[in-house]
Computed example of a mutant assay.
Amino acid sequence: MVRQVVVVGAGVYGAAVADTLTRRGARVTVVDAGAAAGGTSGATFSWLNSCGKQPRAYHDLRVAGMAAHRRLAAEVPAGGWYHDGGNLEWAADHAGAERLRRKVAGVLGYGYEARWLDRAEALRLEPDLAPAELPADGIAWFPAEGWVDPIRLIGHLLSASTGRGAELVDGDAVTDLEVAGGLVRAVRLRSGRRLVADAVVNCAGPQAAGIAALAGLALPMRNTRGVLIYTAPAPVAVSRVVHAPRVHLRPDGGGRLLLHSPDVDDAAYPSETGEFAVDRSAVEAVLDAVRALLPGLRTMPVESIRPGPRTVTVESVRVGERPIPGDGLPVLGRVVELPNFHFAVSHSGATLCLHAGDLVAREVLGEDVDDALAAFRFERLAVDPDHSPKIQ
């Protein structure tokens, strides 16, 4: 019987797994090398969607993840982390418009909500957008999508878990896993502490491969960097996720905007201190794009801006590391050769965490959820030419 579970990682997955485990009576210790929500979960666009995702099993998992967020928000209406309103998207050229049309046709074929809007309809949803930046028609609206504040969500889930007796150990990295008799027996921390475990759940995000290696498992990962730009409070109203051709944005509370562009991701580089820095010209290009899209940013009061024509200011630029398993799909659930070691690792953890984390936790406690997790097992990535699992 599983009584004591060690969850490695205090991001959205670790918090969600711990929540289900403690609700079902398990004793849980959540460990993190840094602070809770201090890794990828603290630097994410956190867009809730299943917009053009393949294969169908992955799409369905994400749709279930979106539904789990809506349920939790209904149960805790004062939580403040869940924001609906949908997602607007349009293209700048013919090729982009064709890709968007194919994406909309594909999701409609899956029964996913999508509508085509013209410029006037889009402006009724987002009246502060510059009309000249919008095409006359061909604007896609995905009304079931939204975004979450991951820090507040993690805070709620960890608070609920510790209220049921879970222990949070932060600032103490996992240094070893004791494996004997085909099971993980204990987790060792940098502090010297030894945590006896009936089960271990690897929710370590970008560091998941390192934790797996301690158990003798080879988890292929192809992590990427993501750059996010957080503005100071700005006198414009943005109510939902917007994917414009040159900038992606959403509100971020307190009048702030969160900005992203795929182009700026490539501008991150290691600095002399070991931290990541971002080329300033790439950040300015994103700001120029959002100023064009939101004319109200050009009329900010003088006392709240820098001198000169650039009228939107930046509070912070964060570089996050996106955890992406080798084939791009989640790795979820138990390992066949090490059945008390479980994974909860994926890109788009904000969308998936509540539903996928619940499934993983239920399997940890012995429930049969194989139908839901079969497509996302570790073994699909860990097969030698002779089809035997890669156990180092």
Results as ranks from 00 to 15, higher is better:
residue 154 I to D: 03
residue 166 A to L: 05
residue 140 A to T: 01
residue 162 T to D: 08
residue 190 R to D: 12
residue 165 G to L: 02
residue 159 S to N: 14
residue 187 V to H: 09
residue 142 F to P: 13
residue 161 S to N: 03
residue 139 I to K: 00
residue 163 G to M: 05
residue 164 R to Y: 02
residue 134 L to Y: 00
residue 173 A to C: 11
residue 151 I to P: 05
residue 180 A to M: 12
residue 190 R to S: 12
residue 166 A to Q: 00
residue 167 E to H: 12
residue 177 L to A: 06
residue 174 V to Q: 04
residue 179 V to P: 03
residue 146 G to A: 12
residue 142 F to V: 15
residue 119 R to A: 12
residue 166 A to T: 03
residue 159 S to C: 08
residue 133 E to D: 15
residue 188 R to V: 12
residue 173 A to K: 06
residue 122 A to R: 02
residue 121 E to P: 01
residue 144 A to C: 14
residue 164 R to P: 08
residue 123 L to I: 02
residue 140 A to N: 06
residue 141 W to N: 13
residue 169 V to D: 02
residue 185 R to H: 04
residue 123 L to S: 03
residue 152 R to F: 02
residue 148 V to Q: 04
residue 176 D to M: 13
residue 141 W to C: 13
residue 133 E to I: 11
residue 163 G to S: 00
residue 189 L to G: 02
residue 168 L to T: 07
residue 123 L to F: 07
residue 136 A to R: 13
residue 185 R to G: 05
residue 181 G to M: 10
residue 145 E to S: 02
residue 159 S to I: 06
residue 178 E to W: 04
residue 187 V to M: 10
residue 182 G to E: 11
residue 168 L to P: 04
residue 138 G to S: 14
residue 176 D to V: 10
residue 173 A to V: 07
residue 136 A to I: 13
residue 187 V to F: 04
residue 188 R to N: 10
residue 133 E to L: 13
residue 173 A to E: 14
residue 161 S to T: 06
residue 167 E to R: 15
residue 134 L to A: 11
residue 177 L to G: 04
residue 130 A to T: 09
residue 163 G to C: 08
residue 126 E to C: 08
residue 128 D to V: 11
residue 170 D to E: 15
residue 157 L to H: 06
residue 127 P to N: 09
residue 163 G to L: 00
residue 178 E to F: 01
residue 174 V to W: 00
residue 119 R to E: 12
residue 124 R to K: 13
residue 123 L to D: 12
residue 143 P to N: 08
residue 180 A to V: 10
residue 170 D to R: 15
residue 126 E to A: 11
residue 155 G to I: 05
residue 120 A to D: 15
residue 167 E to A: 14
residue 181 G to V: 10
residue 190 R to A: 15
residue 172 D to M: 10
residue 140 A to W: 01
residue 168 L to Q: 02
residue 171 G to S: 04
residue 150 P to S: 09
residue 170 D to I: 15
residue 137 D to V: 13
residue 174 V to A: 03
residue 160 A to I: 10
residue 138 G to I: 11
residue 191 S to W: 09
residue 149 D to N: 06
residue 183 L to S: 15
residue 137 D to A: 15
residue 187 V to L: 11
residue 134 L to R: 07
residue 163 G to Q: 08
residue 182 G to Q: 12
residue 139 I to Y: 03
residue 153 L to T: 04
residue 122 A to S: 08
residue 166 A to E: 09
residue 174 V to I: 00
residue 186 A to W: 01
residue 131 P to L: 11
residue 174 V to C: 09
residue 159 S to K: 03
residue 154 I to P: 04
residue 143 P to W: 07
residue 154 I to W: 06
residue 156 H to L: 15
residue 174 V to S: 05
